[in-house]
Amino acid sequence: MIVVCSDTHSRTGHELSEHMLKAVREADLVVHAGDFTTTAALSAFRAESDRLFAVHGNADDAEVREHLPSARTFDVGGVTTALTHRQHGGATALAMFGRSRGASLVVSGHTHRPSVTHADDVTLLNPGSHADPRGSRPGYAELVPGDNVVRGRLLDPGGTVVDSFEVRRGGDAGDS
Rank of each mutant, 00 (worst) to 15 (best):
T38A: 04
T39L: 11
A41W: 00
L42E: 00
S43Q: 09
S43D: 15
S43P: 00
A44H: 03
A44V: 03
A44K: 02
A44C: 04
R46K: 14
A47C: 03
E48D: 14
E48I: 03
S49F: 06
S49P: 02
D50P: 12
D50H: 14
R51K: 14
R51M: 04
R51Q: 09
L52I: 08
L52E: 01
F53V: 11
A54C: 05
A54P: 00
H56N: 02
H56E: 05
H56W: 14
G57I: 03
G57T: 08
G57Y: 04
N58A: 13
A59Q: 06
D60N: 10
D60G: 05
D60K: 06
D61F: 05
A62G: 08
E63F: 11
E63W: 08
E63A: 15
V64T: 04
V64C: 07
V64W: 03
V64R: 04
V64E: 02
R65I: 04
R65C: 10
R65Q: 13
P69L: 02
P69H: 06
S70L: 02
A71E: 14
R72Q: 08
R72N: 01
T73D: 05
T73Q: 04
T73Y: 01
F74E: 02
F74A: 04
D75P: 05
D75A: 10
V76P: 01
V76R: 06
V76C: 12
G77D: 06
G77S: 11
G78T: 12
V79K: 01
A82M: 07
L83A: 00
T84V: 15
H85S: 05
H88K: 15
H88G: 09
G89N: 13
G89K: 13
G90H: 12
A91K: 12
A91V: 11
T92P: 01
T92E: 12
T92F: 11
A93C: 11
A93H: 10
L94M: 12
L94K: 04
L94S: 08
L94P: 06
A95D: 09
A95M: 12
F97K: 09
G98V: 09
R99S: 15
S100G: 15
S100Q: 15
S100R: 13
G102H: 08
S104T: 13
L105W: 04
L105M: 10
L105Q: 11
V106A: 13
V106W: 04
V106K: 12
V106F: 12
S108T: 14
G109C: 10
H110E: 12
T111I: 09
H112E: 12
R113Y: 02
P114D: 11
T117R: 15
H118T: 14
A119V: 13
D121P: 02
D121E: 14
D121K: 10
D121L: 08
T123N: 02
L125E: 03
N126S: 11
P127E: 09
S129D: 08
H130M: 09
H130P: 15
D132M: 07
P133R: 06
P133N: 09
R134A: 10
G135H: 07
S136Q: 14
P138G: 10
P138H: 09
G139Q: 03
G139Y: 03
A141K: 03
